[in-house]
Simulated assay, not measured.
Amino acid sequence: MAIRSDVSESRIPAEIVRTLRSGIGRVCDEVIEEIRTRIPEYARPSDEIYVKVVRTAVEQAIDGFLDRLEDPGAPWDPEPFRMLGKGEAAEGRNLEPLQAAMRLGARVGWRRLTELAGPLGLSPQCLYGLGDAIFVYLDQLADAAAEGFEYARAHEAGEMERRRSRLLDLLLSRPPAGQEAIADLAKAAGWRLPRTVACVALDEQHGARRLPPLPPDVLTGHQRPAPCLLVPDPAGPGQAQTLEHALRGHHAAIGPAVPLTSAATSLRWAGEALELSRRGVLPRGLLRCEDHMATLVVFKDEELVSALAEVRLAPLAHLRPTQQDRLAETLLAWLRHGRGAGEVAAKLHVHPQTVRYRLRQLEELYGDQLTDPDIRFELEIALRARQAVLAR
Score class of each variant (00 low, 15 high):
Met1Ser: 14
Ser8Glu: 07
Ile16Gln: 11
Arg18Asp: 15
Val27Asn: 05
Cys28Leu: 02
Asp29Asn: 15
Arg36Val: 03
Thr37Gln: 02
Ile39Glu: 05
Pro45Val: 15
Ser46Glu: 15
Val51Lys: 09
Val53Glu: 00
Val54Cys: 13
Thr56Asp: 04
Ile62Val: 09
Leu66Phe: 12
Gly73Tyr: 11
Gly73Asn: 01
Pro75Trp: 04
Trp76Cys: 03
Arg82Ile: 06
Met83Gln: 09
Arg93Cys: 07
Leu95Ile: 00
Leu98Gly: 00
Ala101Val: 04
Leu104Cys: 01
Gly105His: 01
Ala106Cys: 14
Arg107Ala: 09
Arg107Ser: 13
Val108Gln: 07
Trp110Ser: 07
Trp110Phe: 10
Glu115His: 10
Leu122Arg: 01
Cys126Pro: 04
Tyr128Gln: 11
Ile134Val: 15
Val136Ser: 15
Gln140Asn: 08
Ala144Ser: 03
Phe149Trp: 13
Arg153His: 13
His155Val: 12
Arg162Pro: 04
Leu167Pro: 05
Leu167Lys: 08
Leu167Asp: 06
Asp169Met: 14
Leu170Ile: 02
Gln179Asp: 15
Glu180Lys: 14
Ala181Ser: 13
Ala183Ile: 08
Ala183Asp: 05
Leu185Met: 14
Leu193Glu: 10
Pro194Met: 01
Val200Gln: 09
Ala208Cys: 03
Ala208Gly: 13
Ala208Val: 09
Arg210Lys: 08
Leu214Met: 03
Asp233Gly: 07
Pro234Thr: 03
Gln239Phe: 04
Gly249Met: 12
Pro259Gly: 08
Thr261Asp: 12
Ser262Met: 11
Ala264Trp: 12
Thr265Ile: 07
Trp269His: 05
Glu275His: 09
Val281Phe: 10
Gly285Asp: 14
Leu286Phe: 10
Met293Gly: 11
Glu303His: 13
Leu304Ala: 06
Ser306Gln: 13
Arg312Ser: 08
Arg320Pro: 08
Thr322Phe: 10
Glu343Ser: 06
Val344His: 02
Ala346Gln: 10
Gln353Ala: 15
Arg360Lys: 11
Gly367Ser: 06
Asp372Trp: 06
Glu380Cys: 09
Ile381Ala: 03
Ala385Phe: 08
Gln387Thr: 13
